[in-house]
Amino acid sequence: EDYYQILGVPRNASQKEIKKAYYQLAKKYHPDTNKDDPKAKEKFSQLAEAYEVLSDEVKRKQYDA
């Protein structure tokens, strides 16, 4: 799945936009606030993985290549 789609940001998003999108979605899908939703944990880990790659310039360049 596309990391940009997961975070809901365009491919040319700035680091600030990526961070903002991640924090909004992380708050929304955090397992502690969605105890009754088994998919929230999965969504949250996808968000974390996408953010880890896109927030790191080197990893992001490799991902975009």
Rank of each mutant, 00 (worst) to 15 (best):
E49A: 14
R60I: 01
T33Q: 13
Q46Y: 10
K28H: 08
A13F: 03
A48Y: 13
E1S: 14
E49Q: 12
A21N: 05
K39N: 13
Q62G: 06
P38K: 07
K20W: 15
S14V: 05
P38F: 07
E52I: 10
Q15L: 15
E49Y: 08
Y4M: 00
Y22A: 03
N12T: 13
K39A: 14
E42R: 11
Y4N: 00
Q15C: 07
L47G: 03
N12Q: 09
D36W: 11
D36Q: 08
K16I: 15
K19R: 15
L54K: 00
K28D: 08
L54T: 01
E17T: 11
A48R: 12
V53Y: 03
P31E: 12
K19D: 15
Y22I: 01
R11T: 05
K28W: 07
V9P: 00
Y51P: 00
L47Q: 03
K59S: 06
D56S: 04
I6A: 05
A40C: 08
Q15F: 15
K16Q: 15
D56T: 02
A26W: 15
P10K: 13
Q46C: 07
K19P: 01
V53I: 10
I6P: 00
V58C: 10
A50G: 02
A26Y: 15
H30L: 09
R60E: 01
F44N: 04
L25K: 06
A40K: 06
Q46F: 10
Q15E: 09
K28I: 12
K39R: 14
Y63W: 03
S55F: 06
Y29N: 05
S14N: 09
Y22N: 01
Y23S: 11
S45L: 12
E52H: 07
K43P: 03
K59G: 03
P31C: 09
D36G: 12
H30N: 11
L7P: 00
Q24P: 04
I18W: 01
K28G: 06
E57C: 08
Q5K: 14
Q24I: 15
G8K: 08
D36N: 11
A26G: 05
K41V: 11
A48F: 14
D56F: 02
K27W: 07
A65N: 06
K61D: 07
L7I: 05
R60K: 07
P38D: 10
F44L: 09
R60T: 01
S55D: 04
K43M: 11
R11L: 04
D2Y: 05
G8L: 04
D36E: 12
K43G: 04
G8D: 05
A40T: 07
K20N: 15
R11P: 06
Q15G: 09
A13G: 03
K16W: 12
K59T: 05
P31S: 13
Q24Y: 15
T33L: 13
K43A: 09
S45V: 11
A40D: 05
L54N: 00
S14P: 06
R60H: 02
E52T: 11
Q15N: 13
E52C: 10
K41D: 07
K19V: 15
K16A: 15
L7V: 03
Y22R: 01
Y3V: 02
K19E: 15
Y23M: 15
K61R: 12
A40Y: 08
T33Y: 14
Q5T: 13
Y29F: 12
V9W: 00
D32S: 13
D64M: 02
Q46G: 05
L47H: 02
D36L: 10
N34T: 09
Q5L: 10
K35S: 11
L7M: 08
D32C: 07
K20Y: 14
A48W: 13
V9S: 01
L25S: 05
L25T: 03
E52A: 15
P10E: 12
K28N: 08
P31L: 06
Y22L: 02
A21D: 00
E17H: 09
Y29W: 10
A48H: 13
K41F: 15
V9I: 11
N12V: 06
L47P: 00
Q15V: 12
D37W: 05
